[in-house]
Design a protein around this nucleic acid. Sequence first.
DNA 1: CACCTCTCATTGACATATCAACGATATGCC
DNA 2: GGCATATCGTTGATATGTCAATGAGAGGTG
Lengths: 161, 161
Amino acid sequence: MTRATGSVRRRQLPSTDELRVWREYIETAERLRSRLAARLQAESSLSIGDYQVLLALSEARPRALRSSELAATIGWERSRLSHHLGRMERRDLVRRDECATDNRGAEISLTDTGERAFRAATVPHLRAVREVFVDAFTAPQLDHLAAATGALRSHLAESDS
Amino acid sequence: MTRATGSVRRRQLPSTDELRVWREYIETAERLRSRLAARLQAESSLSIGDYQVLLALSEARPRALRSSELAATIGWERSRLSHHLGRMERRDLVRRDECATDNRGAEISLTDTGERAFRAATVPHLRAVREVFVDAFTAPQLDHLAAATGALRSHLAESDS
DNA sequence: CACCTCTCATTGACATATCAACGATATGCC
DNA sequence: GGCATATCGTTGATATGTCAATGAGAGGTG
């Protein structure tokens, strides 16, 4: 799996090995997501999205966030968040109030139900993360994975601009 | 980021570092998926799912697959595939025919349109994989990533049983 | 104030994913 | 053959994700 040292510009397409790494990476990440989602759903009746929203709200000080701030925190489009908040509101997990300083705005906060649901979900979810993800690796592997993930993350961020 | 060498059973929850690796891994994988999906859509008017289906069908010999075989090949639930094939059929990308040897069954094959769409999509998509994924890493990083992915994959497969 | 432009959050339309239930057929066993 | 059971693929309901369009209001500038 070494790279050609010659003219790089000619190598337009991934090699077979590179392609295999790509396929395994994306498939494995997807299975992981799906496994964690299933556990979270079974143990706490929450989706990954629910958990992200509840986590961000529970860490917010004060205990409310503008909808855009929440979207930025968890990296969602505002539209996506709006739809999701509608579903969470129906289940009494969050509340939407008018914003005092901006009449367009919405202040999102946890309901008691939402706070209880998040508290009850946290430990089982973290345990699942350890069992399903962390325990898969040796310590050096986890370090290597962190480095590779960082490189990928930077690469994606660069090509944003 | 070394592990405690003592009683492992007591460490139930991930450490802060482990949790950060987890979050970055899952977020980066998701951004990567989304980036590739956007490019495939822009360059070829296909979704990732479309591409997976077309790829499996174009590699099939003979040029048709039973719906369950196709589902197994790409690792989808049959229900998911059935819905997706319905949408692809509306766009004239695939065809469903009755199966000669099993009256319950469906034989899925590419239409000419589907074959052309897949041919046209392949090179741009592979180039995108190289640019967005492969080019992010040094050669050793890619090897390390492959190893870690393999470990995770095995770990997930183990806990299936 | 009047106007223009930007931002905020929502909405509708549609694609995608999951789950349970279903009708039709195949298969094994008597 | 006749029955029990398993498999095949589909469907409907619902949740989730993306995009474009929208109405309401904020903010700057004249």
